[in-house]
């Protein structure tokens, strides 16, 4: 027999977490902070920016959510969750202290080791700011380990912009070059938010060193092509253009099949893919 019958850890059994705080980021996106139900258990639960967790709601099921917090801020797990269906509807009914199940982390996450010392361009669209917040906080918490940090964020309108107060505060910071835009209706925020698609913010992205820059993109499916085309104009190396994707997932372990794209599983080989993968796999973006 070639393969040993070696069992692994029980990957499909969630551990229990409880909600310690929540607040609305937009009319339909809520921010949750959760910790293990038994505080001194699961202290080893670590993760990387760009990874995701499977959250389970009693009786309603399980779904993947990208982690919005940074591993540099240990102990608390944060998620920005949009109300779109059965599970998220139920998550929105949860109160502080309520419990939910968690498995993970899953996915490859951003290749932090490779990104050290590099200039980082982050492009977020809509809810894409949720997983990218993990990366953003990670870089800010380890600022000296990275080069320039450029962050472009586009949302539908100012109300739909995640973490708007945080971003407004960061506009004053010298730690990053931050530009915000909305598709329409920046009234009242003209000094902080531009109007137009996120691609239109690339006019601020100048003096890029193509050999020393890594771009990270996350947003709605339609956004990737346009944004990647902009990034390609800077002659970045293809493996240095990273996209963070969403797919249907039921397991997180490369078994259920739903997240497959060509020969890659989004839950193991992704959700962070390179532009090199994009060229090779038709269905990717």
């Amino acid at each position: 027999m070639k393969y040993e019958y070696k069992k692994g850890p029980e990957l499909y059994t969630p551990i229990m977490m409880r909600i310690i705080s929540k607040r609305d980021l937009t009319p339909d996106v809520r921010f949750f902070q959760i910790v293990p139900k038994e505080e001194f258990k699961h202290l080893d639960l670590d993760y990387k920016p760009g990874q995701f967790m499977m959250l389970s709601l009693f009786g309603s099921g399980e779904a993947p959510f990208s982690i919005s917090s940074s591993p540099t801020r240990k102990g608390i797990f944060e998620f920005a969750i949009r109300k779109t269906g059965k599970i998220t509807n139920k998550i929105f009914e949860l109160k502080d202290g309520d419990q939910l199940g968690l498995r993970g982390p899953f996915g490859n996450g951003f290749p932090i080791e490779k990104m050290l010392g590099k200039d980082i361009v982050i492009v977020a669209g809509g809810l894409g700011a949720a997983p990218l917040r993990s990366l953003l906080l990670y870089i800010l918490d380890n600022r000296e380990l990275f080069g320039r940090l450029i962050y472009l964020y586009g949302a539908k309108n100012p109300q739909e912009m995640l973490y708007r107060p945080d971003f407004f505060e960061m506009l004053e910071s010298d730690q990053l070059e931050l530009y915000l835009t909305v598709d329409k209706g920046n009234e009242g925020f003209e000094d902080k938010i531009e109007e137009g698609m996120v691609t239109h913010l690339f006019k601020y992205v100048n003096d890029i060193d193509p050999k020393n820059t890594i771009a990270c993109v996350c947003g709605p499916p339609v956004m990737y092509k346009f944004v990647v085309n902009e990034i390609l104009k800077y002659n970045l190396e293809k493996h240095n253009i990273l996209v963070n994707l969403e797919r249907r997932m039921k397991c997180g372990t490369g078994k259920c099949g739903h997240c497959i794209i060509d020969y890659r599983y989004t839950c193991i080989d992704g959700p962070v893919f390179t532009y090199w993968d994009v060229i090779h796999m038709r269905e990717l973006i």
Binding site: G59, S60, K86, N89, K90, E93
Partner: peptide, 10 residues
Amino acid sequence: TQLLFGNKPT
């Protein structure tokens, strides 16, 4: 059961 729980059955 799902309906009583407040969910739409899927």
